[in-house]
Design a protein around this nucleic acid. Sequence first.
DNA 1: TCGTTTGTTTATTGTTCGATAAACAAAGGA
DNA 2: TCCTTTGTTTATCGAACAATAAACAAACGA
Lengths: 211, 211
Amino acid sequence: MATRGRPRTFDPDTALRQALDLFWERGYEGTSINDLAQAMGIASPSIYACFGSKEELFRRVMALYGATAGEPPRRALREQPTAREAVHAMLRATADQITGPDTPHYCMLILAAATGTVENHTVREFLADRRRDMHDTIKHRLARGITDGDLTAPPDTLDGIARYYTTMVQGLSVQARDGATRAELETVVSCAMAAWDTLAPPAPPQADETP
Amino acid sequence: MATRGRPRTFDPDTALRQALDLFWERGYEGTSINDLAQAMGIASPSIYACFGSKEELFRRVMALYGATAGEPPRRALREQPTAREAVHAMLRATADQITGPDTPHYCMLILAAATGTVENHTVREFLADRRRDMHDTIKHRLARGITDGDLTAPPDTLDGIARYYTTMVQGLSVQARDGATRAELETVVSCAMAAWDTLAPPAPPQADETP
DNA sequence: TCGTTTGTTTATTGTTCGATAAACAAAGGA
DNA sequence: TCCTTTGTTTATCGAACAATAAACAAACGA
């Protein structure tokens, strides 16, 4: 049972990318179905047939956003050899991402639905959940630093340090939204990293390592 | 020419406070005129007669917000004796403010209109202007620290340091919105202050300093 | 070819949006 | 006592909102 019925005249992935562009620019509530239909090049019934509802479309869009724009900071966190380098690279990747020439200057996850009507509460909480995931991801990376031996912070401080750098990422998004340049964000990142050695002193004798 | 015509049956200041409560909860676009009329206890034509339009009402509300909720952080910045204490107290006052028991857990200035429809662009820029004022205010306080002799940072780093602490304040708002407690914000503030001595070494022969 | 299935097109649905017109009410000035 | 002024009340305005019903179109299986 493969292809019964009239074939679709548009590519859902392409349409999703076009929806992403518009949601990114105007946020969830600032984007109407009519605007979306026009940007996606289809009529509104096709949106509902393919994606279900405005909220479901937005969730699909956010998945795409996470897999594309959200990937560089996450990769930095994952691939850098030490916790310090990982956090630093993540902050720089974030600064890059939110000052790109072809996209709005902020992180969708943070500003696309911060406040709004009562009826859209579930959408805001959906984004809030993803933001809380950011904190967990950073915290786990710090814990890995302890396991790897490149980080010697007291384990009970990890949550606070992770929250501190999460807060930085979220603040950077507001800064970029308000017109801060990439260079200005770099100074902020440098300040944020200046706290590192106080918060997490480097491991003293790093001679022999790697079992 | 004093009081001609029918006297007003409501107190504009009280109505403004009630409008503040609702705008604070739902943001600019999330709050409708009907909602406002109900919360203010008057009919919508009275809103227009007294305040002009939704946008003008919101600007009045934000002035009230700045004079009330916005005052403690500003006062901390103004009244603390050293730049370091001023910034630290400002961060703590901000954390207090955005985790209060009777108000939404975020700063209106930062999250009440982050994204939205094209037609409300002027409202978003109005808030963005006020946020840029935050940066200027902090920067001037740092400059005063140099004049007062309690701060020995290179003058060309003041903008970056000010932007760093502005970014912190803005990030804290997102954290509180997502449910971070006052205690959790305190750990973030501590981390933020850990960067201070690296960024701005304390003046050597200065008498006082209180941890 | 014909019936079934699926997608698109067209035309709306009822609701809510910000904002007003018109009628009515309460005050001062003459 | 009118007349003017100002505010409230009532009833909307046209536009935009998210979401659909119904009619039409294009594919497959038989």
